[in-house]
């Protein structure tokens, strides 16, 4: 399958993700922020598709946009929105924030200017058809142990959340 208007889609999706990301931190209403975040995640899913990683894109949509963000919204709707809107939006740690942003920006600039020596010129294109299989082989073969540890960590997190949320079990 021939890619169609790749450059256009790349800039479109990146722009979408960036604009949505800015909206996430500037909207006063937390529900609007969450919706913008969903848009950003969908844009990312599109970018994954362009990287010939359809499985990752699909999982991104199912887990983040369809699952986690719904739970986010669920919680946000339960808290008092009028109250949170009145609260100060940006907190007092802006100095640290700016430092972190500058550091990240410098890193980006460095990668952009010196990156050619750090990364190979062109990443070999993965065959789109076998992407899912590759991921499966990686997860359940090469990185089996790490994968299991990560899932154990999640299990602990789940139990912790249940214990914290529920007064009586």
């Amino acid at each position: 399958m021939q890619p169609v208007a790749t450059t256009f889609f790349f800039y479109f999706l990146s722009g979408l993700t960036l604009v949505a990301g800015i909206l996430v931190i500037t909207r006063r209403n937390p529900v609007h922020s969450a919706l913008a975040l969903i848009l950003a995640l969908l844009g990312q899913a599109g970018l994954y598709l362009m990287l010939y990683a359809p499985f990752v894109a699909g999982v991104q949509i199912i887990l983040y946009a369809g699952g986690i963000m719904v739970l986010f919204l669920f919680v946000i709707m339960l808290v008092n929105i009028e109250k949170s809107q009145k609260e100060e939006q940006f907190n007092k740690q802006w100095v640290v924030g700016i430092l972190a942003a500058v550091a990240l920006g410098v890193l980006f600039v460095l990668v952009y200017t010196k990156g050619k020596s750090l990364f190979p010129e062109r990443v070999a294109q993965l065959p789109e058809q076998s992407n899912t299989q590759e991921i499966a082989v990686m997860l359940y073969g090469n990185y089996m142990f790490t994968f299991e540890i990560a899932s154990l960590l999640l299990l602990v997190a789940i139990i912790g959340a249940v214990v914290m949320a529920k007064k009586r079990i």
Binding site: I38, F55, A57, G58, I61, I62, A65, G66, V70, L73
Partner: peptide
Amino acid sequence: DMNIGVLFMLGVSSLSVLGIVMAGW
């Protein structure tokens, strides 16, 4: 025909809940 067809269907249809939640809110 996508090679993630089922995943695509589940993913996109799971997005519809967003619309419902937005409508309700």
